[in-house]
Design a protein around this nucleic acid. Structure first.
Lengths: 244, 244
DNA sequence: CCAATATTGGAACGCTACTCCAAGTCGGAG
DNA sequence: CTCCGACTTGGAGTAGCGTTCCAATATTGG
């Protein structure tokens, strides 16, 4: 028996194993040993299928603990400080994109197509919830959450394709590929025109000891710092408080 | 005489007037009154053409003043404080995406495909240059600039498709479409399940008086605040200064 | 048991990016 | 001026894509 769920599941599997361009109706019919008509009876559209796949993966990522934890939390997303919870949600998304590389591009496209679709809504809610207990006045909830979400989505979609170091404590052999990638980037940056790209050349060496995941967390902390500094917990909505 | 430049130019025009899906080889041959072979002789690839179009638009946006200014600057990008210069670059990108709506999706896709392609490089350089005079120690240039760039690209790609208020002082009629869009979003948010989306519902009313461009600037200032707070200008690289 | 409905598989359609090639154009050498 | 090699052009052709349509088959309710 075919069902929408089974089709979406097969689509995710296909995307994970064979990459972005492998999700065609024909390969799906072969994988599920059926015809195109059957698939279109349940799904209606290739884009709809993609959106369903994205939504499924994102929902899973937001529901599960960020990294399979050695520390058993007292409940789903029950971290201590609101900052920790925000970091957890962000890392959940980051790791989801790392695990499903196709997600980066598809996520980006879907977001531009419908910026307030289910995906953005979910992320917004997950980030905004801890924002309420950060001491930010309600009037600024939208602005601060929006900034954080924009950063998170921008960073995750951009960091996806890079080879990462072996994250799950696996063989350090993956680090070699990673080092190769970083070295290639480093050399390319050094060969740039010094007049056009002085800054890039000045920081090219920092490229080599660069860890995407750590950088991602550093960025989160930077934005959080800005939010907290602009809205200190003691502040009780003092008239017109400018961010600058 | 056909040339790569002419083809890229025609492609941009086509994308601007007819949208994302209108850029086909066929429409290009008709527009340029030639054959497909001629085009492929100069461009080689549809993706290459798209990348060239993106790079052209981005380069123009970064070279020109952010908004056609009433205040003649003393030179290209010669704003006062480094913060102002960063804001100017960011606004230039934002306005470019607003002017070329197709840019949002294509930019996002290209960035995920090659995260350190010419586009990211250009933006990185333009943002990083003023970063050097912000008082951030060189060791943290990469991290801070990276955060800012991620936010900027994330925010611009996400804000693009929304109808904006008439930006160029045109008829306020565009504002009606905008208000309609905001009202629709507001109503959709209010109909959400209060148990699943309490935060979204709590800030739904802020959606109505929301200005994408102002929000974008607020986000920039928030990130800048975090950067400056974490790296106060007086600080002279005091040992191991953590961002947290 | 049968009729109405839901589901299935696959043939067919229009569209796409891209390849290939014969014809045309151009520019410098003799 | 002529001729030849290289560059350029336009279009026919190919393979693959998403999607539609429909006859055949299962499933369900009366």
């Amino acid at each position: 028996m075919l069902s929408r769920e089974r089709i979406v599941e097969a689509a995710i599997e296909l995307l994970d194993t064979a990459g972005e361009g492998a999700l065609t109706v024909r390969t799906l019919t072969e994988r599920l040993s059926t015809g195109s008509g059957a698939i279109y009876h349940h799904v209606g559209n290739r884009n709809e299928l993609l959106q369903a796949a994205i939504d499924t993966v994102i929902a899973d990522a937001l529901a599960a603990p960020p990294t399979e934890p050695a520390a058993p939390a007292t409940g789903p997303g029950a971290a201590g400080t609101p900052e920790d919870e925000i970091r957890a949600v962000a890392l959940g998304l980051f790791d989801a994109v790392t695990e499903h590389p196709w997600l980066a591009a598809q996520l980006a496209v879907q977001i531009t197509r419908s910026p307030w679709g289910p995906v953005t809504l979910r992320v917004f809610e997950s980030i905004g919830r801890p924002m309420r207990v950060l001491g930010v006045p309600q009037r600024d909830w939208f602005a601060t959450t929006s900034t954080l979400v924009h950063y998170i989505l921008g960073a995750t979609t951009q960091n996806a394709q890079n080879p990462h170091g072996a994250g799950d404590g696996g063989t350090p052999g993956g680090g070699a590929e990673r080092a190769e990638f970083l070295d290639a980037a480093f050399r390319a940056w050094q060969d740039l025109d010094p007049d056009d790209y002085p800054f890039i050349r000045a920081i090219a060496d920092q490229m080599r000891e660069h860890d995407d995941r750590r950088q991602f967390l550093t960025g989160i902390d930077l934005v959080l710092k800005g939010i907290i500094t602009s809205h200190p917990p003691a502040t009780r909505s003092p008239g017109t408080q400018r961010v600058t």
